[in-house]
Design a protein around this nucleic acid. Structure first.
Length: 226
DNA sequence: GAGTATCG
DNA sequence: GGTA
């Protein structure tokens, strides 16, 4: 009960803890589902894979097309890198002159994305790109759509790691009503079909300590971008 | 346009 | 919600 509404357990939970649940599905919207605890047993493995990517493609603070800095830092792996600057949002197949290629999607991450897509009834999904979003406490992401990918039939697979966060999920228009759900380390959200272009965002992340990630939240979105 | 302020 |  406390887990589904707040990251802070009731005092009673400390004395009479609710047993951890295993993986289960939660409907979010038509075509969209939350796979609770989907990667819970593989969080350390995910962390190690992410560390490997970030060594080769360090996190960077992007700016919006309007020129203002984003609070979230990003990196990329797969066949492109996500770029936001004064020219807009885009996927860059090649890195800046002098830089090596984007690191490939690590195999454990790829396998997790494929399994999650299958569990969410998108069995044909094969991502070619993964965006790494890194949130320090206070970082947030305003309501937006993922609409720069070539194939609108491919879903988005989103893995949450580290500190919990409130995720906003709306409809195809910015003014549509949004649902707010807490996402915890190891949860996966998949949206596609009628929800593929749904507006979504993340509220400012509250400080805390995650046993594996410490004072940060890391979100991975797997996409068919090219 | 994944940001923010301000106005109506 | 539109505009800057």
């Amino acid at each position: 009960m406390s887990r589904s509404t707040s990251p802070v357990p009731f005092v009673n939970d400390l004395f009479d803890p609710v047993p951890d649940t295993g993986p289960y599905r939660e409907a979010l919207a038509p075509g969209a589902v939350i796979l609770r605890n989907f990667a819970r047993d593989r969080v350390e493995e995910m962390a190690e894979a992410i560390r490997g990517v970030l060594r080769r493609a360090p996190l960077k603070a992007m700016h919006t097309p309007g020129g203002l800095p984003m609070t979230v830092k990003t990196s990329s792996c797969g066949n492109a890198g996500w770029v936001s600057d004064e020219h807009g949002y885009r996927y860059a197949r090649v890195r800046a002159h002098g830089a090596s290629e984007w690191p490939p999607i690590p195999e454990p991450l790829m396998q997790l994305a494929l399994a999650a897509a299958r569990a969410a009834d998108y069995p044909d999904f094969v991502p070619d790109f993964c965006l790494i979003n890194y949130y320090r406490p206070g970082a947030k992401l305003g309501l937006h759509q993922d609409k720069d990918e070539r194939d609108p039939n491919a879903p988005i697979v989103s893995l949450s790691l580290g500190l919990p966060a409130e995720f906003l999920f709306g409809g195809n228009e910015r003014s549509d009503k949004t649902r707010t759900v807490w996402l915890y380390s190891g949860d996966v959200v998949v949206w596609g079909g009628p929800s593929r272009m749904a507006f979504h965002g993340v509220k400012p992340v509250a400080d805390g300590i995650d046993p594996v990630f410490g004072h940060c939240r890391v979100n991975l979105t797997f996409r068919k971008a090219l």
